[in-house]
Amino acid sequence: MSKKIRIATTSLAGCFGCHMSFLDIDERLTQLAEAVEFNRSPITDIKQCSACDIGLIEGGVCNADNVHVLREFRDQCKMLVAVGACAINGGLPAMRNEVPLEECLTEAYIDGIGIENPVIPNDPELPLLLNKVHPIHEIVTIDYFLPGCPPSADEFWAFLSDIIAGQEPVLATELIHFD
């Protein structure tokens, strides 16, 4: 048996919708399981990335931990893929970029309707928020992109089939959607 393709996945400032859509490849998952193995991913619960062929990143970068994880993936993965609108352009989380961070926190934790014990959380365990949410290509080099919110299961499959076949991935125009 030839060596399996090793894939790692993570969700940064995303909603896990891309991961859910990935799982929507349904019965094709069995075909996938024959050709690939998963490393760090919510699917395996492995917490540290080791050397991988493909890294799939969902979500943009909104805090210090996101930067750290993204760099770890870049170090370990031969091909790093931005998956979904948030990884590609910040997506809905980046809508906070038009509002200063302090105002966002004040609205969410101090002035918002129905808030009891108003205080901005500052537990040292919580990763520090960045002033703005960034697309991942602004932090590390990205090798490929799967647009969509989320990318459809067929789009994931088209990409993965190309990879499994040892071909350079090419998305057909009808699979390119930004919504």
């Binding site: 590609i88 352009n89 703005k132 960034h134 697309p135 290509h137 602004e138 799967l146 390119i176």
Partner: peptide, 16 residues
């Protein structure tokens, strides 16, 4: 048009 020119990403830093 972005779909037509096969734009997958925004390439440049975003101005926001």
């Amino acid at each position: 048009v972005a779909y037509h020119v096969k734009m997958l990403d925004s390439h440049f830093p975003h101005f926001f």
